[in-house]
Protein backbone atom coordinates (compact mmCIF):
# COMPACT_ATOMS: atom_id res chain seq x y z
CA UNK A 1 0.00 0.00 0.00
CA UNK A 2 1.24 3.44 -0.84
CA UNK A 3 1.45 6.07 1.81
CA UNK A 4 -0.39 8.51 -0.37
CA UNK A 5 -2.59 9.85 2.39
CA UNK A 6 0.42 11.59 3.90
CA UNK A 7 0.49 13.97 0.94
CA UNK A 8 -0.20 17.55 2.04
CA UNK A 9 -0.56 18.95 -1.44
CA UNK A 10 2.60 21.00 -1.68
CA UNK A 11 2.91 20.38 -5.43
CA UNK A 12 6.67 19.95 -5.48
CA UNK A 13 6.19 16.73 -7.40
CA UNK A 14 4.37 18.46 -10.20
CA UNK A 15 7.00 21.16 -10.43
CA UNK A 16 9.76 18.66 -11.07
CA UNK A 17 7.71 16.16 -13.10
CA UNK A 18 9.30 15.77 -16.54
CA UNK A 19 5.88 15.03 -18.02
CA UNK A 20 4.58 18.34 -16.69
CA UNK A 21 7.01 20.08 -19.06
CA UNK A 22 5.21 18.52 -22.00
CA UNK A 23 1.68 17.88 -20.75
CA UNK A 24 -0.85 18.68 -18.06
CA UNK A 25 0.33 15.74 -15.98
CA UNK A 26 0.22 16.59 -12.30
CA UNK A 27 1.14 13.99 -9.71
CA UNK A 28 -0.33 16.24 -7.05
CA UNK A 29 -3.65 16.45 -8.78
CA UNK A 30 -3.74 12.70 -9.36
CA UNK A 31 -3.25 12.12 -5.65
CA UNK A 32 -5.86 14.74 -4.75
CA UNK A 33 -8.52 13.39 -7.10
CA UNK A 34 -7.94 9.89 -5.94
CA UNK A 35 -7.76 10.68 -2.24
CA UNK A 36 -10.65 13.08 -2.03
CA UNK A 37 -13.07 11.89 -4.72
CA UNK A 38 -11.82 8.46 -5.68
CA UNK A 39 -11.54 9.72 -9.25
CA UNK A 40 -9.22 8.37 -11.90
CA UNK A 41 -7.11 10.94 -13.69
CA UNK A 42 -5.26 10.70 -16.99
CA UNK A 43 -2.16 11.56 -14.99
CA UNK A 44 -1.90 8.09 -13.56
CA UNK A 45 -1.49 6.84 -17.13
CA UNK A 46 0.75 9.55 -18.52
CA UNK A 47 3.12 9.17 -15.54
CA UNK A 48 6.44 7.77 -16.75
CA UNK A 49 7.02 6.12 -13.37
CA UNK A 50 10.48 7.58 -13.74
CA UNK A 51 10.80 7.89 -9.98
CA UNK A 52 11.91 11.53 -9.90
CA UNK A 53 9.11 12.97 -7.75
CA UNK A 54 9.40 10.56 -4.80
CA UNK A 55 13.03 11.62 -4.48
CA UNK A 56 11.99 15.20 -3.90
CA UNK A 57 8.78 14.65 -1.93
CA UNK A 58 9.05 16.15 1.58
CA UNK A 59 6.48 13.65 2.84
CA UNK A 60 8.24 10.78 1.08
CA UNK A 61 5.04 9.80 -0.66
CA UNK A 62 5.59 6.59 -2.58
CA UNK A 63 4.11 7.84 -5.81
CA UNK A 64 5.26 4.82 -7.80
CA UNK A 65 3.30 2.42 -5.65
CA UNK A 66 0.35 4.78 -5.75
CA UNK A 67 0.36 4.86 -9.54
CA UNK A 68 0.72 1.12 -9.77
CA UNK A 69 -2.19 0.53 -7.46
CA UNK A 70 -4.35 3.12 -9.19
CA UNK A 71 -3.75 1.43 -12.52
CA UNK A 72 -4.82 -2.00 -11.40
CA UNK A 73 -7.56 -3.53 -13.48
CA UNK A 74 -8.06 -0.44 -15.62
CA UNK A 75 -7.45 -0.07 -19.28
CA UNK A 76 -4.33 1.89 -20.22
CA UNK A 77 -4.83 5.07 -22.21
CA UNK A 78 -2.13 4.32 -24.74
CA UNK A 79 -0.05 1.23 -25.27
CA UNK A 80 2.62 1.43 -27.94
CA UNK A 81 3.47 -1.15 -30.59
CA UNK A 82 -0.23 -1.97 -30.90
CA UNK A 83 -0.10 -3.87 -27.63
CA UNK A 84 1.83 -6.76 -29.11
CA UNK A 85 4.15 -7.17 -26.12
CA UNK A 86 1.27 -7.07 -23.66
CA UNK A 87 -0.64 -9.66 -25.68
CA UNK A 88 2.46 -11.83 -25.81
CA UNK A 89 2.98 -11.62 -22.06
CA UNK A 90 -0.68 -12.35 -21.40
CA UNK A 91 -0.67 -15.30 -23.77
CA UNK A 92 2.45 -16.76 -22.23
CA UNK A 93 1.01 -16.21 -18.75
CA UNK A 94 -1.84 -18.54 -19.65
CA UNK A 95 0.42 -21.32 -20.85
CA UNK A 96 2.36 -23.95 -18.97
CA UNK A 97 5.75 -22.65 -20.09
CA UNK A 98 9.01 -24.54 -20.48
CA UNK A 99 9.60 -27.43 -18.15
CA UNK A 100 11.47 -26.50 -14.96
CA UNK A 101 14.91 -28.01 -14.88
CA UNK A 102 17.92 -28.20 -12.66
CA UNK A 103 20.73 -25.86 -13.55
CA UNK A 104 24.31 -27.05 -14.01
CA UNK A 105 25.56 -23.68 -12.90
CA UNK A 106 25.03 -21.70 -9.74
CA UNK A 107 24.43 -18.71 -12.02
CA UNK A 108 21.39 -18.15 -14.11
CA UNK A 109 21.23 -15.58 -16.90
CA UNK A 110 17.85 -14.25 -18.04
CA UNK A 111 17.90 -12.55 -21.45
CA UNK A 112 14.51 -10.89 -21.01
CA UNK A 113 12.36 -10.04 -24.00
CA UNK A 114 15.11 -9.26 -26.52
CA UNK A 115 13.95 -12.01 -28.88
CA UNK A 116 10.48 -10.50 -29.15
CA UNK A 117 12.00 -7.05 -29.55
CA UNK A 118 13.97 -8.35 -32.49
CA UNK A 119 10.82 -9.74 -34.09
CA UNK A 120 8.39 -6.91 -33.46
CA UNK A 121 10.69 -3.88 -33.46
CA UNK A 122 12.53 -4.69 -36.65
CA UNK A 123 12.01 -1.13 -37.89
CA UNK A 124 14.42 0.46 -35.40
CA UNK A 125 17.33 -1.45 -36.92
CA UNK A 126 18.76 -2.69 -33.64
CA UNK A 127 20.11 -6.17 -33.08
CA UNK A 128 18.57 -6.84 -29.71
CA UNK A 129 19.75 -10.44 -29.71
CA UNK A 130 23.31 -9.16 -29.59
CA UNK A 131 22.71 -8.13 -25.97
CA UNK A 132 22.40 -11.80 -25.05
CA UNK A 133 25.35 -13.02 -27.12
CA UNK A 134 27.48 -10.14 -25.84
CA UNK A 135 26.56 -10.84 -22.24
CA UNK A 136 27.51 -14.48 -22.66
CA UNK A 137 30.90 -13.53 -24.13
CA UNK A 138 31.62 -11.13 -21.29
CA UNK A 139 30.52 -13.55 -18.60
CA UNK A 140 32.65 -16.20 -20.19
CA UNK A 141 35.62 -13.86 -20.07
CA UNK A 142 35.25 -13.41 -16.32
CA UNK A 143 34.76 -17.11 -15.81
CA UNK A 144 31.02 -17.30 -15.31
CA UNK A 145 29.18 -19.94 -17.31
CA UNK A 146 25.55 -19.34 -16.43
CA UNK A 147 22.48 -21.40 -17.22
CA UNK A 148 20.32 -19.49 -19.69
CA UNK A 149 16.98 -19.28 -17.95
CA UNK A 150 14.10 -20.28 -20.25
CA UNK A 151 11.55 -18.29 -18.30
CA UNK A 152 8.53 -16.25 -19.17
CA UNK A 153 8.56 -12.47 -19.34
CA UNK A 154 9.39 -10.99 -15.92
CA UNK A 155 6.03 -9.19 -16.09
CA UNK A 156 7.39 -5.68 -15.68
CA UNK A 157 5.24 -4.10 -18.35
CA UNK A 158 1.99 -5.81 -17.46
CA UNK A 159 2.52 -4.94 -13.82
CA UNK A 160 2.93 -1.26 -14.64
CA UNK A 161 0.06 -1.42 -17.15
CA UNK A 162 -2.32 -2.42 -14.39
CA UNK A 163 -2.55 -6.12 -15.15
CA UNK A 164 -1.55 -7.55 -11.80
CA UNK A 165 -3.36 -10.83 -12.46
CA UNK A 166 -1.18 -11.43 -15.50
CA UNK A 167 1.90 -10.38 -13.57
CA UNK A 168 1.08 -12.75 -10.72
CA UNK A 169 0.79 -15.69 -13.10
CA UNK A 170 4.10 -14.86 -14.74
CA UNK A 171 5.73 -14.34 -11.39
CA UNK A 172 4.46 -17.63 -9.98
CA UNK A 173 5.83 -19.55 -12.92
CA UNK A 174 9.18 -17.74 -12.87
CA UNK A 175 9.66 -18.18 -9.12
CA UNK A 176 8.98 -21.91 -9.47
CA UNK A 177 11.32 -22.08 -12.40
CA UNK A 178 14.12 -20.33 -10.52
CA UNK A 179 13.55 -22.47 -7.40
CA UNK A 180 13.61 -25.69 -9.37
CA UNK A 181 16.77 -24.63 -11.17
CA UNK A 182 18.62 -24.29 -7.90
CA UNK A 183 20.65 -21.30 -9.04
CA UNK A 184 22.05 -19.01 -6.40
CA UNK A 185 22.52 -15.89 -8.48
CA UNK A 186 20.25 -14.54 -11.20
CA UNK A 187 22.00 -12.28 -13.68
CA UNK A 188 20.10 -10.04 -16.02
CA UNK A 189 21.17 -7.49 -18.58
CA UNK A 190 17.90 -5.61 -18.48
CA UNK A 191 17.19 -2.74 -16.11
CA UNK A 192 13.48 -3.54 -15.93
CA UNK A 193 13.99 -7.24 -15.23
CA UNK A 194 16.52 -6.27 -12.59
CA UNK A 195 14.10 -3.98 -10.83
CA UNK A 196 11.24 -6.47 -11.09
CA UNK A 197 13.15 -9.50 -9.85
CA UNK A 198 14.72 -7.44 -7.07
CA UNK A 199 11.72 -5.57 -5.79
CA UNK A 200 8.55 -7.29 -6.99
CA UNK A 201 9.42 -10.96 -6.71
CA UNK A 202 10.92 -11.71 -3.31
CA UNK A 203 13.14 -14.41 -4.78
CA UNK A 204 15.42 -15.00 -1.84
CA UNK A 205 18.43 -15.40 -4.07
CA UNK A 206 20.92 -12.88 -5.30
CA UNK A 207 19.80 -10.78 -8.26
CA UNK A 208 22.60 -9.09 -10.17
CA UNK A 209 22.60 -6.63 -13.03
CA UNK A 210 25.33 -7.57 -15.44
CA UNK A 211 26.99 -4.17 -15.17
CA UNK A 212 27.98 -5.08 -11.61
CA UNK A 213 30.26 -7.80 -12.99
CA UNK A 214 32.01 -6.06 -15.83
CA UNK A 215 34.69 -3.93 -14.15
CA UNK A 216 37.12 -6.86 -14.14
CA UNK A 217 37.26 -7.47 -17.88
CA UNK A 218 40.67 -5.87 -18.10
CA UNK A 219 40.00 -4.16 -21.40
CA UNK A 220 41.94 -1.13 -22.54
CA UNK A 221 39.40 0.87 -24.47
CA UNK A 222 40.30 4.29 -25.70
CA UNK A 223 36.92 5.91 -26.21
CA UNK A 224 34.71 8.70 -24.97
CA UNK A 225 31.16 7.75 -24.25
CA UNK A 226 28.22 9.11 -22.39
CA UNK A 227 25.99 7.05 -20.19
CA UNK A 228 22.22 7.21 -19.88
CA UNK A 229 20.79 6.05 -16.55
CA UNK A 230 17.61 4.06 -17.14
CA UNK A 231 14.93 4.92 -14.57
CA UNK A 232 14.72 1.31 -13.47
CA UNK A 233 18.41 0.85 -12.81
CA UNK A 234 19.02 4.36 -11.53
CA UNK A 235 16.35 5.90 -9.37
CA UNK A 236 14.35 2.68 -8.86
CA UNK A 237 17.39 0.65 -7.77
CA UNK A 238 19.97 3.30 -6.98
CA UNK A 239 22.53 1.67 -9.25
CA UNK A 240 24.52 4.55 -10.71
CA UNK A 241 28.12 3.56 -10.17
CA UNK A 242 28.30 -0.03 -11.40
CA UNK A 243 27.71 0.71 -15.09
CA UNK A 244 30.05 3.69 -14.98
CA UNK A 245 32.68 1.59 -13.30
CA UNK A 246 32.22 -1.12 -15.91
CA UNK A 247 33.20 1.51 -18.45
CA UNK A 248 35.94 3.45 -16.67
CA UNK A 249 37.64 0.32 -15.31
CA UNK A 250 38.04 -0.78 -18.92
CA UNK A 251 39.65 2.47 -19.95
CA UNK A 252 36.60 4.28 -21.23
CA UNK A 253 36.06 7.94 -20.46
CA UNK A 254 32.48 8.69 -19.44
CA UNK A 255 31.37 12.20 -20.25
CA UNK A 256 28.36 13.00 -18.15
CA UNK A 257 25.27 14.61 -19.54
CA UNK A 258 23.75 17.74 -18.05
CA UNK A 259 21.31 15.56 -16.13
CA UNK A 260 22.69 12.34 -14.84
CA UNK A 261 22.42 9.79 -12.08
CA UNK A 262 19.57 10.81 -9.71
CA UNK A 263 18.62 13.65 -12.04
CA UNK A 264 18.80 11.72 -15.30
CA UNK A 265 16.08 12.43 -17.83
CA UNK A 266 13.83 9.58 -18.93
CA UNK A 267 13.95 8.22 -22.49
CA UNK A 268 10.25 9.07 -22.57
CA UNK A 269 8.51 5.72 -22.77
CA UNK A 270 8.37 3.22 -19.97
CA UNK A 271 6.48 -0.06 -20.03
CA UNK A 272 5.69 0.60 -23.70
CA UNK A 273 3.14 3.21 -22.75
CA UNK A 274 2.57 6.71 -24.06
CA UNK A 275 4.60 6.86 -27.20
CA UNK A 276 3.44 10.22 -28.57
CA UNK A 277 4.48 13.76 -29.38
CA UNK A 278 4.79 14.67 -25.71
CA UNK A 279 7.17 11.90 -24.82
CA UNK A 280 9.06 12.43 -28.05
CA UNK A 281 9.98 15.87 -26.71
CA UNK A 282 11.64 14.14 -23.74
CA UNK A 283 13.49 11.79 -26.02
CA UNK A 284 14.79 14.67 -28.12
CA UNK A 285 15.86 16.54 -24.99
CA UNK A 286 17.80 13.51 -23.80
CA UNK A 287 19.46 12.88 -27.13
CA UNK A 288 20.44 16.54 -27.36
CA UNK A 289 22.07 16.27 -23.95
CA UNK A 290 23.94 13.19 -25.09
CA UNK A 291 25.07 14.93 -28.23
CA UNK A 292 26.23 17.97 -26.26
CA UNK A 293 28.76 15.84 -24.38
CA UNK A 294 30.65 15.44 -27.64
CA UNK A 295 30.81 11.68 -27.17
CA UNK A 296 30.09 9.56 -30.23
CA UNK A 297 28.55 6.73 -28.27
CA UNK A 298 25.59 6.70 -25.94
CA UNK A 299 25.61 3.71 -23.61
CA UNK A 300 22.58 2.46 -21.77
CA UNK A 301 21.59 -0.65 -19.85
CA UNK A 302 17.91 -0.91 -20.73
CA UNK A 303 16.76 -2.41 -24.01
CA UNK A 304 13.73 -0.10 -24.13
CA UNK A 305 15.87 3.03 -23.80
CA UNK A 306 17.99 1.52 -26.57
CA UNK A 307 14.97 0.96 -28.80
CA UNK A 308 13.57 4.42 -28.19
CA UNK A 309 16.77 6.34 -28.85
CA UNK A 310 17.39 4.25 -31.94
CA UNK A 311 13.82 4.91 -33.09
CA UNK A 312 14.59 8.62 -33.01
CA UNK A 313 17.84 7.97 -34.84
CA UNK A 314 16.33 5.86 -37.61
CA UNK A 315 13.49 8.22 -38.42
CA UNK A 316 12.88 8.44 -42.13
CA UNK A 317 13.60 11.94 -43.31
CA UNK A 318 14.40 13.17 -39.79
CA UNK A 319 14.50 16.87 -39.00
CA UNK A 320 17.73 16.30 -37.11
CA UNK A 321 20.29 13.57 -37.69
CA UNK A 322 22.13 12.42 -34.61
CA UNK A 323 25.70 11.40 -35.22
CA UNK A 324 25.92 9.23 -32.14
CA UNK A 325 25.74 5.47 -31.73
CA UNK A 326 23.32 4.17 -29.16
CA UNK A 327 24.63 0.92 -27.73
CA UNK A 328 23.86 -1.41 -24.87
CA UNK A 329 26.64 -1.59 -22.27
CA UNK A 330 27.30 -5.31 -22.76
CA UNK A 331 27.23 -5.00 -26.53
CA UNK A 332 29.70 -2.11 -26.41
CA UNK A 333 32.11 -3.97 -24.19
CA UNK A 334 31.79 -7.26 -26.06
CA UNK A 335 32.49 -5.56 -29.38
CA UNK A 336 35.63 -4.04 -27.87
CA UNK A 337 36.56 -7.43 -26.48
CA UNK A 338 36.18 -8.98 -29.94
CA UNK A 339 38.08 -6.14 -31.59
CA UNK A 340 40.94 -6.58 -29.14
CA UNK A 341 41.33 -10.28 -29.94
Amino acid sequence: MSNVQSCYQCGKCTSICPMRRVSKTSPRSSIYNSNVYGLETNGIWTCLTCGLCPMECPQQVDFLTFVREERQGKRPLEVAHLGVFTEFAELSSKLDGARHQKSDSEYGYFPGCVDQFGLFLHDVKTNFGEITTSSMKLLDKIGIKPQIMDMKCCGHDVLWQGKKDVFDRLKKYNIDHIKESGIETLITGCAECYRTFSKDYGLGIKVVHISELLDKLGLKINADVTYHDPCRLGRHMGMYDAPRKALTANGVTVKEMEHSKENALCCGVSSFMNCNEQTKALRIARMNEAEATGAKTLITTCSKCLAHFNCLKTEKDAVKKYDIDVVDLSVFLARQLEAGK
Partner: peptide, 11 residues
Protein backbone atom coordinates in the same frame (compact mmCIF):
# COMPACT_ATOMS: atom_id res chain seq x y z
CA UNK B 1 -3.45 -8.15 -39.62
CA UNK B 2 -1.52 -6.97 -36.60
CA UNK B 3 0.55 -9.58 -34.79
CA UNK B 4 -1.37 -8.54 -31.67
CA UNK B 5 -4.62 -9.77 -33.30
CA UNK B 6 -3.16 -13.25 -33.60
CA UNK B 7 -1.79 -13.29 -30.06
CA UNK B 8 -5.11 -11.99 -28.77
CA UNK B 9 -7.09 -14.68 -30.58
CA UNK B 10 -4.85 -17.40 -29.20
CA UNK B 11 -5.02 -15.86 -25.77
Amino acid sequence: VEPAFILKALK
